[in-house]
Simulated assay, not measured.
Amino acid sequence: MKLRNRGRGKVTLALLCMCIAALLLAGFRNGAGGETVTASAAADVIISEGAGLEQGLELLVTAGRKSTEPGSPLRLVLKWQGEYSGNAAESAEAAAGLAERLGLGTPEHSEEDGHTTFRAAASFNPSGKISMFWSGIDQSSSYVIVTLETADLLKATAFQAAAQEAGVQMQAAGIEPEWNVSLQGVASTQGTPREALVHTEQAIAAAVSGMQAVEEYEDETTYSRSYSVPGLARYVSSGKHAVAMQTAVHKNGNNNSNRVTIGLPLITIEY
């Protein structure tokens, strides 16, 4: 499947910040500890891809809150990923520079499956983590993933600032990143995975018109569907379909509860 965008322009997380702050916590903005001059200045001139991130986050958080147990933690995982062009020496220098600017310190260098990799990670609040994975593809390019994760979105007081800075700093390193985001929590419906997913779809359909299921997967413990959504700017080409969203419900074998996951444009974490 190939990632595409209907919009144009460069990526930013400023819209993400506005969206989550308005939906969840006034303290999200106040507890960020202040944005750096680099991040705030660059954000003024960077435009979201078709405004898709703001719109997508609003949908994701709304659907997640409606389809999960009230008061239960909402795990959010946001990934920025893209390619870097440069030889081995340039890549090593760029990886070290990006890790430092993200506040991750000196990255660990290793050889994995014949590829040179750099890894670094750090916490940015009691429930948040940011990590960088940099892997050589060939002699002239690398693939980079910066992941921001919080175990409980309602307590992630510094998530906004860290997320915005990550997008800005990847661009400053010469990487044009694309985003994907997943939200996960305890499903409010504790029947079969299929029943819980139907409830999730109803919650999403109340906020978005034109949603149409185009692909599905089911086994004994999991039920998943992907959807085309004409109003969403970000999508993945899968066969003849433009997939803009995916939902999944997985039955937890340890406590027999349902876990719901919603991803835009796809789920990129474990169900």
Rank of each mutant, 00 (worst) to 15 (best):
G64A: 09
G231A: 14
S237C: 11
A21W: 10
V260P: 04
V146K: 06
R234M: 12
A122E: 14
Q171E: 13
A122H: 04
K10L: 14
D113V: 03
G34A: 10
M245T: 00
N254G: 02
A21N: 15
L102E: 04
K66T: 09
S226E: 07
L197R: 05
E58K: 11
G33Q: 01
E270S: 10
S237F: 03
P70A: 10
L23N: 05
R194P: 01
S40C: 11
N87P: 03
A89M: 11
A51M: 09
L148S: 05
A207N: 07
Q190V: 06
A244Y: 03
A207Y: 00
G263I: 00
T12I: 02
G52L: 01
L53K: 00
Q81E: 15
V77E: 09
L24V: 11
E165W: 00
V186K: 09
I204D: 01
T106Y: 01
M18E: 14
L232Y: 11
A207D: 05
A196L: 09
C17F: 00
N256T: 05
R234F: 06
I137Q: 07
F28W: 13
V45I: 11
P193C: 00
T268F: 09
F28C: 04
L197T: 09
T150M: 08
E215A: 10
A32T: 07
A242L: 13
G64D: 08
E58H: 13
A39L: 08
Y271L: 04
S188C: 09
V37K: 13
V144M: 10
L13C: 13
A63H: 01
S228R: 00
I20A: 10
E112F: 06
S226N: 08
A92Y: 07
A88T: 13
H199L: 07
M18W: 02
T62M: 10
